[in-house]
Design a protein around this nucleic acid. Structure first.
Length: 389
DNA sequence: ACGTTGATTGTTGAC
DNA sequence: GTCAACAATCAACGT
């Protein structure tokens, strides 16, 4: 995650973070394309001539050298499987919540950074309100900010509760609990009681099928720390922290930085206890079996004009036979791959004839579309609903 | 259905 | 209601 100051603005929306996904195992060997002088003068002690290693680590080292930015890594928190994050959902998105030394980060979407210093309190909420029966294996974590914003991290596995609570409590954050003045007993009791009970294996299986690979992904995050030297990545340049966000040593210079942790603004919820009644999540088909294809809607009007052919399609028509000739063994799908490969290597000039054909087809499509729209203007008057197709 | 490129269409969220 | 981002769709083709 690259955090920007100031954020990128698109339209009316600000984007404070860029999230990049790397292959975890890919190793690269790259030389800096910088002149010797520049390297010796401006980036002395910050960059070296070449880098080799896991791609994300090289990326971070180079970016840090170029920008001088601080680097944050997972701190001391571990989930119950010894990973760095806990699975959770924010808004409608499933993701990972990383508890850091000085804050929290939810990834991948929406990328949400919360600094401890802006938190008023956190509240653990049990799923399924009210009761004596603790049927749910999940709980929610509500983070209330001093500026009144709220972030509700839903559907955290019950087995994460102990580590998460201890970590948050250890930071000195204020922890609220449901209807209970006595510190932490209410929810804590319930959650901890059942902590060691194995979750319903059937449910687990279903969930894993419905969701995506769930167990594995957290665990292979381990690479991050082991790589350098167990948690203090300050091997070179000494300019980084083991964890926590950008406020480096102190927050004296952070006057303007306060505003930054706020992402695209969050609308406030009235009170934290109305919405979560139904812990519904992904609409992925998970009932018995059978139903695998779900098309929300497929309106295929046979009269609709066909889409225009892109230049690449004309290129494919022209060259497919030739490619097939020189590689008779290739499957049709492999021929498509090859065509795409060739296409990417062609210059705009070479593509020109196909571009011209495509432009002609685009005109054709525009005309037909206009006519099509004029001919079938859907429901015009509010008369009797006539289902003419 | 696959597999390609890339424009268009559809959906979602923010303001 | 408007704007931007993002996801899904779909053109041709041959097995």
């Amino acid at each position: 995650v690259v955090t920007l100051d100031p954020p990128i603005r698109k339209g009316q929306t600000l984007y404070p973070h860029i999230v990049i996904q790397f292959e975890t195992e890919t190793v690269v060997q790259k030389n800096m394309k910088l002149s010797r002088e520049l390297l010796d003068e401006k980036y002395k002690d910050r960059l070296v001539e070449s880098y080799q290693g896991l791609v994300h680590e090289v990326f971070v080292k180079v970016l840090r050298g170029l920008s001088g930015a601080k680097v944050t890594r997972p701190g001391s928190f571990r989930n119950y499987k010894n990973g760095y994050a806990v699975k959770s959902s924010l808004k409608a998105e499933d993701g990972l919540l990383y508890p850091l030394e000085k804050g929290f980060f939810f990834l991948p979407k929406p990328p949400t950074l919360i600094l401890d210093e802006e938190i008023e309190f956190v509240e653990f909420e049990r799923h399924g309100a009210g009761g004596a029966s603790m049927s749910s294996q999940y709980f929610d974590l509500l983070v209330k900010l001093k500026n009144d914003q709220e972030h509700l991290f839903r559907n955290i596995q019950r087995s994460e509760y102990r580590n998460l609570f201890n970590f948050i409590n250890g930071k000195g954050l204020k922890v609220m609990n449901l209807g209970d003045g006595q510190g932490t007993s209410g929810v804590t009791d319930v959650l901890q009681d059942t902590d060691d009970v194995a979750p319903d294996p059937h449910l687990e299986r279903i969930k894993n099928q419905a969701g995506s690979s769930e167990d594995s992904d957290e665990e292979d995050e381990d690479f991050v720390l082991h790589k350098d030297d167990g948690g203090s990545p300050t091997d070179d340049s000494g300019g980084e922290e083991s964890d926590a966000s950008e406020s480096g040593g102190e927050k004296q210079k952070s006057s303007k930085k306060e505003a930054r942790s706020s992402k695209p603004p969050v609308k406030r919820k009235p009170k934290g206890k109305d919405g979560e009644g139904s812990g519904k999540r992904k609409p992925k088909g998970m009932d018995g079996e059978g139903s695998e294809k779900r098309k929300p809607k497929k309106k295929k009007d046979p009269n609709a004009p066909k889409r225009p052919m892109m230049p690449f399609m004309y290129f494919s028509m022209a060259e497919r036979a030739g490619v097939k000739d020189s590689n008779p063994d290739l499957a049709p799908t492999d021929i498509a791959k090859k065509l795409g490969e060739i296409w990417q290597k062609m210059s705009t000039e070479d593509k020109q004839p196909y571009i011209l054909q495509s432009q002609a087809d685009q005109k054709r499509y525009e005309k037909e579309s206009a006519a099509y729209r004029a001919a079938a203007p859907v429901d015009v008057d509010a008369g009797s609903g006539n289902g003419s197709d």
